[in-house]
Design a protein around this nucleic acid. Structure first.
Lengths: 169, 169
DNA sequence: ACCCATTGATTGGCCGACCAAGGTAATCTG
DNA sequence: CAGATTACCTTGGTCGGCCAATCAATGGGT
């Protein structure tokens, strides 16, 4: 090292010098999550629940195990989250007649009523995050994020599959 | 709408159509965090603690309030995290002679010993995430993340400041 | 000097996330 | 068909995060 860096230059912790993009990604992801959390709070949703609800909006009554697979979460996480969502009326759960150990989950009408709000959160977040970025930069960012996702997919499992609804496709 | 979309096309929840980049960002951030978590577990660190330790490595004994400000976390989060880090010997805490309600925090030698491992996590993560990306793409990704961070900074406060160590600069 | 607002830190509660362990039902196997 | 294995879910524990309420110490106003 030819000489010590001048003092007072790094907002970034020096121990992360080996991963500048990773640190930037972690930072922006955190801010993004905070911004999302604020907006979800106004819908009376906790961060994380929006993904669950979106899954339920897209597919009808679903086995809980399929939600676990689809969201890539731990089974216990899904159990507890669904208990809370059920208790506040956003979700309905019942036994699966075809498999007595499985549980079928479904969004209630009240749960479905949140959809417009959540869509608004995503578009609002997109508009805020990408303000000042031209269509070109946006496409480039999407492409690069896709590449990183591909790189990480092997190690950190996929969190958005599309197991075809049986009978279709 | 001219006709329903063909079934079985969207790994992405349809309610997020208004924020494709935001959804991609959330996805890659989650995978990134999982990959980081795996590596930190081998160092016997929980995700989140690495940021705390990095702050402590860079600055010597720090007031807890400064850590809170610097990490952008809630005061209670920092209190509990430091209690655990202290209990397992990575951190030492003591009263501030200049302000009897403040607490001075410092990394122990054992805590400092984690630094190489954490640096390795960041470089390893960077290498994994950006595999296959040329220097050009990496720079572009860093630039775009910087822009997004700038956009989010107003709402989701800064999480990496550099209040100059008093006396220097 | 006194009172009061501000700052620093802690506690308790809640939620999302994980792991480990357990229980029940279905399925595979001999 | 009985026994072992696997799949599905639940419970209890821990940790990182937040909010609300609390306490102690500092500092400013009059």
């Amino acid at each position: 090292m030819p000489g010590p860096d001048p003092v007072c230059t790094e907002p970034t912790p020096s121990a992360a010098h080996g991963g500048p993009v990773s640190i930037a990604l972690a930072r922006v992801a955190r801010m993004h999550r905070i911004a999302a959390g604020r907006r979800l709070k106004e819908l009376e949703l906790y961060p994380g629940q929006e993904m669950m609800m979106m899954r339920l909006w897209d597919r009808g009554p679903v086995r809980q195990s399929e939600l676990i697979q689809s969201l890539g979460l731990d089974a216990s996480t899904v159990t507890k989250m669904l208990q809370r969502l059920e208790q506040c009326g956003h979700v309905r759960r019942g036994p699966d007649p075809a498999d007595r150990r499985a549980v079928l989950v479904e969004a209630t009408d009240e749960g479905r009523a949140l959809r417009a709000g959540v869509e608004g959160v995503w578009t609002d977040l997109e508009q805020l995050s990408l303000s000042g970025l031209g269509p070109e930069d946006r496409a480039e960012l999407a492409r690069l994020l896709g590449l990183v996702a591909e790189n990480l997919r092997e190690e950190a499992g996929e969190a958005g599959e599309c197991p075809p609804p049986p009978g279709v496709c």
